[in-house]
Write a protein that binds this DNA or RNA. Structure first.
Lengths: 217, 217
DNA sequence: CCATAAATGGACTGGTTAGTCCATTTATGC
DNA sequence: GCATAAATGGACTAACCAGTCCATTTATGG
C-alpha cells in the first residue's frame, strides 16, 4: 500500500505532505479532507503527492501513523518520570490545560480517527490499535513504578488499572469536546485516579460469574 | 434549518429518509455518506429528500437527533429498574453482548458522531451534548435509587459517579471497536462499577438489604 | 368531484473529486 | 560535466457530488 522512502529532499517533502494531511484530516475529517486542500496546505503539487503515495487511502494510513507517533512522543515523555501519585495529578492537570488551550476542540487525535477508520480500513485500524497499546504500556509502566515506590498497594491490578485509566481519558476527552468543557476531563480522570489510590480489589469472581449467568440478548 | 413536519404519509417518508441516512452515516461517516446512497437506501427520490430537508447539513442534524433518540430509548429502558449492584452488572453484560453481536463494530452511535460534528456543526453538537446529558441523568437516577436502597454509601457522589461511568462506557466502546475485542468493554466497565462498589456496604449486606425494599414506580 | 396543496420522480447542472499523464527541473554518482 | 534517476508542476479527465427545477401523481376537504 505505502511507498518506499525517498532520497533526501524527497523524505522531507513526503513528511511535509503527511504533516499537512494530518492537520487537514484533524479539522475536516478523513472523508472531508480533499487532496487539493492537502496539497495547498503543504505547498506541493498533485504530482508530488502521487509520487509518494499510491492512493488517498495509503496517505490516510500514513496520517494515522503520524498521528500516533506525535501523540505518543508527547505522552511517553509525560510518563517518563512518574514516581509519586502527585505526578499523575500533574499529568491530569497538564492534559486539562491542553484542552483549555485548544478550547476543548479536536478531542484525542487518535481517538477521533477510530470511528472514521476502524471499521473500513483494516490497515489504519491496526495502526491506531498499536498506538493505544503503546499508550497503555506507558501507563502500565508508570503504575508499576508507583507500586514499586509504595505509592500503590500490592493488590492493585496494574494492567487493569492502565486500561481503565486510558478508557477514562478517551471518554473524558470525548465528553469534554462535545460539551466544550475541559473540566469534564478533570472530574473524570480524578475519579479514575482516586480509585487506584484508595485501591479497589480487581474484578471479583462473583462479578463476572453473575454477569455471565445473566447474559441475555 | 430544519423543515416543518408534513401531513401524514409525509411524516412516514421523512422518517424513512432519516432512518436510511442514519444507517448510511453510521457506516460511511458524515462526509462519506452521499445523498445518492441515502436516497437509494430509503427508496426515495432526490426531490423528496429536498422536499423535507433544506440541505445535507439539516439532514445530518436530524440524523444526530434520530441517533440520540434511538440510543436513549434503549438505554433509558435498561436503566428503568436498577435497584441493586447486580442490576448494573447485568447492564454491563447486556452491552458487552451487544458488542459481540455487532462484532465490535460501530462503537457508540452517538459517540462516533462527536469527532465528526462537534467542532464544525454547532447545532449537531448541541443535539449530541443533550443526548449525553439525558444519558448521564438516567445513570444518576439509577445510582440515586441504589443509594436509597442502601446499596451505595451516603458519601458516594452520585453526580460524579454517573459522569465517570458514562466516560468509561464511551472509552470502553472506543477501545473495543479499535481492538475488535468486546471484552475490553467488560474489563473497563467492571472496573468503573467496582469504583462505586468500594464505597458500598459489603456484598452480603447489600444482597439482603436491597432484596425487596421498595420497588420503583 | 373539483380545487388546492402536498408528495413524488428524475433529469439536469455547475462545481469538485481522486487519480492520470507527461514535460520539465533538480539532484546524484561517476 | 554527463548520464541516470528522482523530484516537481500542473493540465487534464471521468466520475461524482450537492443542490435545482419542474412536470406529474396522489391525497384532502368542502
Amino acid at each position: 500500500m505505502n511507498e518506499e522512502p525517498a532520497t533526501e529532499k524527497g523524505r522531507a517533502t513526503r513528511q511535509k505532505i503527511v504533516d499537512a494531511a494530518t492537520s487537514v484530516v484533524q479539522s475536516r475529517g478523513v472523508e472531508g479532507a480533499t487532496l487539493g486542500e492537502i496539497c495547498r496546505t503543504a505547498s506541493v503539487s498533485k504530482g508530488q503527492l502521487y509520487h509518494y503515495f499510491v492512493s488517498k487511502q495509503s496517505l490516510i494510513q500514513a496520517v494515522a501513523q503520524n498521528t500516533v507517533d506525535k501523540v505518543l512522543f508527547y505522552q511517553e515523555s509525560l510518563f517518563a518520570t512518574k514516581e509519586t501519585f502527585s505526578d499523575f495529578e500533574i499529568w491530569v492537570e497538564t492534559l486539562v490545560n491542553l484542552q483549555v488551550d485548544l478550547d476543548a476542540r479536536g478531542g484525542c487525535p487518535i481517538g477521533s480517527l477510530v470511528p472514521q477508520l476502524a471499521d473500513n480500513d483494516e490497515g489504519a485500524r491496526r495502526v491506531l490499535a498499536d498506538g493505544f497499546l503503546r499508550w497503555e504500556m506507558a501507563i502500565r509502566e508508570s503504575l508499576r513504578q508507583l507500586k514499586k515506590n509504595g505509592a500503590l498497594r500490592r493488590d492493585v491490578d496494574v494492567d487493569e488499572g492502565a486500561l481503565q485509566l486510558l478508557a477514562s481519558l478517551q471518554g473524558g476527552l470525548l465528553l469534554s469536546q462535545v460539551r466544550k468543557d475541559p473540566t469534564q476531563l478533570r472530574v473524570i480522570l480524578d475519579g479514575a485516579l482516586l480509585r487506584l489510590r484508595d485501591h479497589a480489589p480487581s474484578r471479583t469472581e462473583e462479578a463476572t460469574q453473575s454477569a455471565r449467568l445473566h447474559s441475555t440478548a
